[in-house]
């Protein structure tokens, strides 16, 4: 019972800190908008991906990028937390490691959600029209994505001993996950090996689900997208909880 309050405490802390650091909030809002305007607008001028236009096409991908960066780095930050800061005091509290993980995870998830929420508001500028269904579906996928990637970041962060590995995580995890997910291009006509890698990437299904809801451009049935997303969350939450139990 007391652990529920503890989970609330950790969540409260993360959200407070997130909202207090306004500069971070601004910079991580500006980045995806630059993607949309420069990359989407520039490349979109010369390629066609259907009626909606290229900017609308990559919008779900950019949403994913926002969540990916916010939440994985949130998770990796545990390395720093472990060294100084508030976290040691959390570890010595009566809370179980699993509850600590859940509190942290929900905190990161909320950060990612707020961040992507801001971008969602900009959607209509890039040719997105929302319906109750499409908005609900996008929010659902964003939350699932955030839960999974926060868990992934926390799992890795809890096992690292210094910040030196962060560059590796960015090069070998975030970038491939993002670029090989169909975030920026249609996945229907990919050459063999690329299509296999893309199909193996769970984020492909999340982008597909969002794109399907927003633009009616599905490569997979919605049920499969949702199913993959659910399994992806379940696995990573389990991995993260385990990693926290093993963390020293």
């Amino acid at each position: 019972m007391s652990d529920l309050w503890g989970i609330y405490a950790l969540w409260y802390r993360e959200v407070k800190v997130f909202l207090r650091e306004k500069s971070r909030l601004v910079s991580s809002t500006v980045n995806p908008l630059i993607w949309m305007v420069a990359f989407g607008g520039g490349l979109g001028a010369s390629i066609s991906v259907g009626e909606a236009g290229y900017q609308a096409f990559i919008f779900p991908g950019v949403l994913m990028l926002v969540v990916l960066f916010t939440t994985i780095f949130f998770g990796l930050y545990v390395v720093w937390d472990k060294k100084i800061d508030f976290f040691k005091e959390v570890l010595v509290s009566p809370m179980s490691r699993a509850s600590i993980f859940v509190g942290k995870m929900l905190g990161g998830c909320t950060d990612g959600f707020i961040q992507s929420g801001i971008i969602i508001l900009f959607g209509p500028l890039f040719g997105i029209t929302y319906t109750a269904y499409s908005l609900g579906a996008v929010v659902l996928f964003v939350i699932l994505l955030a839960m999974g990637t926060t868990s992934l970041g926390l799992a890795i962060g809890s096992q690292m001993t210094s910040f030196e590995g962060v560059g590796l995580v960015q090069s070998f995890l975030i970038m491939p996950l993002f670029f090989l997910s169909g975030a920026l291009y249609p996945i229907d006509n990919l050459p063999g090996w690329l299509s296999w890698v893309t199909y193996a990437n769970p984020l492909t299904y999340i982008v597909d689900g969002m794109r399907g809801a927003l633009l009616d451009l599905n490569s997979f049935p919605m049920a499969i997208d949702l199913g993959v997303a659910a399994v992806y969350v379940a696995v990573l939450v389990a991995v993260g909880t385990y990693a926290f139990k093993k963390m020293s």
Binding site: M1, S2, D3, W5, G6, Y8, A9, L10, Y12, S93
Partner: peptide, 8 residues
């Protein structure tokens, strides 16, 4: 406040 929450 956070400490009080965590320690129930």
């Amino acid at each position: 406040y956070l400490h009080a929450l965590m320690y129930g």
